Measured scan of single mutants.
Amino acid sequence: MQRVNMIMAESPGLITICLLGYLLSAECTVFLDHENANKILNRPKRYNSGKLEEFVQGNLERECMEEKCSFEEAREVFENTERTTEFWKQYVDGDQCESNPCLNGGSCKDDINSYECWCPFGFEGKNCELDVTCNIKNGRCEQFCKNSADNKVVCSCTEGYRLAENQKSCEPAVPFPCGRVSVSQTSKLTRAETVFPDVDYVNSTEAETILDNITQSTQSFNDFTRVVGGEDAKPGQFPWQVVLNGKVDAFCGGSIVNEKWIVTAAHCVETGVKITVVAGEHNIEETEHTEQKRNVIRIIPHHNYNAAINKYNHDIALLELDEPLVLNSYVTPICIADKEYTNIFLKFGSGYVSGWGRVFHKGRSALVLQYLRVPLVDRATCLRSTKFTIYNNMFCAGFHEGGRDSCQGDSGGPHVTEVEGTSFLTGIISWGEECAMKGKYGIYTKVSRYVNWIKEKTKLT
Score class of each variant (00 low, 15 high):
414 P>K: 01
379 R>S: 11
2 Q>K: 07
69 C>E: 04
362 K>Y: 06
96 Q>L: 10
358 R>T: 13
230 G>C: 13
113 N>V: 07
304 N>L: 15
164 A>F: 03
310 N>Q: 07
181 V>F: 05
144 F>S: 01
31 F>H: 06
159 E>N: 07
9 A>P: 11
14 L>A: 07
221 F>T: 09
272 G>A: 08
45 K>D: 11
155 C>A: 01
136 I>P: 14
422 T>E: 01
237 Q>A: 08
341 Y>T: 13
260 K>Y: 07
133 T>E: 10
352 Y>I: 14
358 R>Y: 06
36 N>T: 08
371 Y>T: 13
397 A>D: 02
146 K>E: 13
238 F>Y: 04
177 P>W: 01
455 K>G: 04
219 Q>P: 13
225 T>Q: 13
245 N>Y: 14
452 N>M: 06
424 F>N: 01
298 R>V: 03
79 E>D: 15
367 L>Q: 13
428 I>R: 00
342 T>K: 00
434 E>P: 14
399 F>M: 07
224 F>A: 15
23 L>C: 06
347 K>V: 03
353 V>A: 07
385 S>H: 14
288 E>W: 05
326 V>Y: 10
279 A>Q: 00
406 S>G: 12
160 G>P: 01
243 V>N: 05
44 P>A: 13
385 S>D: 14
439 G>K: 09
400 H>S: 12
195 V>I: 11
48 N>A: 14
281 E>L: 12
364 R>M: 09
99 S>N: 13
70 S>K: 12
190 T>P: 08
402 G>E: 14
448 S>E: 07
92 V>N: 08
90 Q>M: 09
312 Y>I: 09
430 S>Y: 02
252 C>Y: 02
264 T>P: 01
440 K>F: 04
410 D>C: 11
239 P>G: 02
293 K>E: 10
253 G>T: 13
367 L>Y: 11
83 R>P: 12
75 R>T: 14
323 E>W: 06
82 E>C: 03
162 R>L: 09
339 K>Y: 12
282 H>K: 06
72 E>W: 05
442 G>V: 13
69 C>M: 04
217 S>G: 05
334 I>E: 00
333 P>E: 02
409 G>E: 06
62 R>P: 13
185 Q>H: 13
248 V>L: 14
395 F>E: 00
44 P>I: 11
453 W>V: 00
279 A>M: 02
2 Q>T: 06
255 S>V: 11
155 C>V: 00
8 M>L: 11
255 S>M: 04
79 E>P: 15
169 S>K: 08
80 N>E: 06
158 T>C: 05
131 D>W: 09
278 V>D: 03
417 T>A: 05
209 T>D: 13
422 T>A: 04
234 K>E: 14
209 T>F: 08
269 V>P: 03
164 A>P: 02
242 V>G: 00
130 L>C: 04
375 P>A: 14
65 M>F: 12
138 N>W: 06
148 S>D: 09
241 Q>S: 05
65 M>S: 05
216 Q>I: 06
188 K>C: 05
126 K>L: 10
410 D>Q: 15
26 A>Q: 02
210 I>F: 09
288 E>H: 06
148 S>M: 08
216 Q>N: 07
425 L>N: 02
71 F>T: 15
377 V>A: 07
317 A>H: 00
142 E>Q: 11
9 A>E: 06
118 W>S: 02
413 G>N: 05
163 L>F: 01
429 I>N: 14
382 C>Q: 02
146 K>M: 11
44 P>T: 15
211 L>H: 13
175 P>I: 06
434 E>M: 12
368 V>D: 04
20 L>I: 08
309 I>G: 08
440 K>I: 03
113 N>H: 11
169 S>M: 08
361 H>W: 07
281 E>F: 08
369 L>I: 06
199 V>A: 05
95 D>M: 06
101 P>K: 03
308 A>P: 05
432 G>S: 13
85 T>V: 08
404 R>D: 15
352 Y>V: 07
17 I>D: 02
409 G>H: 12
52 L>Y: 08
300 I>D: 02
218 T>K: 09
219 Q>K: 12
345 F>W: 05
451 V>M: 03
252 C>A: 02
182 S>M: 13
117 C>G: 00
50 G>F: 09
70 S>E: 15
273 V>M: 13
23 L>W: 08
272 G>K: 09
336 I>C: 02
141 C>L: 00
380 A>V: 09
182 S>D: 07
56 V>A: 13
451 V>Y: 05
460 L>W: 11
263 V>A: 04
187 S>E: 08
333 P>R: 03
438 K>R: 12
355 G>W: 14
87 F>D: 15
398 G>F: 03
68 K>R: 13
375 P>N: 15
268 C>M: 00
267 H>T: 05
445 T>E: 02
55 F>G: 08
266 A>H: 02
437 M>E: 11
45 K>M: 12
285 E>A: 07
136 I>F: 13
52 L>K: 12
180 R>N: 02
158 T>I: 09
60 L>A: 14
32 L>N: 15
387 K>I: 04
296 V>C: 03
51 K>L: 07
376 L>Y: 06
7 I>P: 11
329 S>K: 14
186 T>Q: 14
404 R>E: 06
335 C>I: 00
148 S>E: 11
37 A>E: 11
366 A>D: 13
268 C>W: 01
156 S>I: 04
214 I>Q: 14
459 K>P: 04
324 P>K: 06
46 R>S: 14
194 T>Q: 13
377 V>M: 06
299 I>V: 07
48 N>K: 10
427 G>T: 01
327 L>E: 03
158 T>R: 01
296 V>E: 01
6 M>N: 12
334 I>C: 02
13 G>D: 04
279 A>V: 04
430 S>H: 04
127 N>P: 00
198 D>F: 08
349 G>C: 03
153 V>N: 06
386 T>H: 10
455 K>C: 04
361 H>V: 13
197 P>I: 06
